[in-house]
Amino acid sequence: MADHGITGKTVLIAGGAKNLGGLIARDLAAQGARAIAIHYNSDATRPEAERTLADIRAAGAQAVAFQADLTQAGANAALFADTIAAIGRPDIAINTVGRVLKKPILETSEAEFDSMVAINTRAAYFFIKEAGLHLNDNGKLVTLVTSLLGAYTPFYSTYAGTKAAVEHFTRAASKEFGARGISVNAVGPGPMDTPFFYGQEAPEAVSYHRQAAALSAFSPTGLTDIADVAPFIRFLVSDGWWITGQTVLINGGYTTR
């Protein structure tokens, strides 16, 4: 029977330097992962990547970091190749990369649309492709999407729309990779208490989001805490391996289906 634990496993996390990605990296290191590769996009994130690397190593795991623009298919191929050369073939691949744009359809430019497609759809597709090529058998693959996939709301057409495609990628990949024992899932957090959220929201919108979830009153901020999401990621890449082809919304009752 395949080993579905985390101890001794090799992990690759796209967007793994900070926020939820950084927390997942630290969590899996604490759970006994042997080696973790984290990806980050820009020079501005390098200091946070270095801090995350230090924390991973302090937990006893090997750690490496790679900078890349994953909107390019070749960059995804290179990220996996560099990871394999540095720490071996991954058992677990997690993609947390994404961009939010809150804007009416009538005000959205072609350049903005193309950027959202590149970051949220194109990068996700080619990360999934490379994971399918390079994950070890019985591997685990998770992509971050958004709880807005369960919402009936204006202004997030490009964000929710470009993440919606990942649901279909996830279902297809779970069928295509399943013969090798690889589980493939998407996770959609609610609005998270990170800079990723606040950069797009006016104060009145923040106030609404803070009370919109069924469990908002029991959250320190009313929002989804990244510490409440990381355990679900941990579960999906370990004991939760039998879950595959699914989109799991983790949001305290912010949206549902």
Results as ranks from 00 to 15, higher is better:
T170G: 05
A173E: 10
A172S: 15
K175P: 01
E176H: 06
A205Y: 13
D193L: 02
S183P: 07
E176V: 06
F177M: 14
S183N: 15
T194E: 11
P195S: 04
Y159A: 05
E176T: 03
P189F: 07
S174N: 06
Q200I: 15
E167R: 15
T170Q: 07
K163N: 05
T194Y: 10
M192L: 05
E176K: 03
P189V: 01
A202M: 12
S157T: 13
T170C: 08
G199L: 00
T194S: 11
I182C: 11
G178H: 08
V206R: 12
V166K: 06
Y208D: 12
G181T: 07
H168L: 15
G199E: 12
E167C: 14
V184M: 09
T194K: 01
V206F: 01
V166N: 11
A186C: 13
P189H: 04
F197Q: 11
K163M: 01
A164M: 11
Y198Q: 02
Y208A: 13
E167F: 13
A186G: 09
T162E: 03
A186P: 11
G190H: 10
R180W: 06
P191D: 08
T170H: 08
K163R: 12
T158D: 09
P195I: 01
A172H: 12
P203A: 00
I182S: 07
A186L: 10
K163P: 04
E201Y: 14
A164T: 04
E204I: 07
T158R: 05
N185Q: 03
G178D: 09
A205L: 14
Q200R: 14
F196V: 09
G188F: 02
R171Y: 12
P189C: 06
F177Y: 14
F169H: 11
T162W: 01
T194H: 08
A172T: 15
A173K: 08
E176R: 09
S174F: 01
T170K: 05
R171N: 11
G199I: 02
P189S: 08
E201M: 15
R180L: 08
V206Y: 03
A202S: 14
Q200N: 15
A164W: 00
G178R: 08
F197I: 11
K163C: 00
G188D: 09
Y159V: 01
Y159N: 01
G178T: 04
H168W: 14
Y208T: 12
R171E: 14
T162N: 10
E167S: 15
A186N: 05
K163G: 05
S157M: 06
S157N: 10
A160F: 00
S174H: 04
N185Y: 05
F169Y: 15
T162F: 00
P189D: 06
P195Y: 05
E201S: 15
A173P: 07
I182W: 10
K175E: 13
H168A: 15
G161N: 02
N185L: 01
D193N: 14
A164R: 12
F169K: 09
G199R: 09
V184L: 03
T194G: 03
E167Y: 13
E201C: 15
P191T: 10
P191G: 10
F177N: 01
G188H: 02
M192Y: 02
A165P: 00
F196I: 10
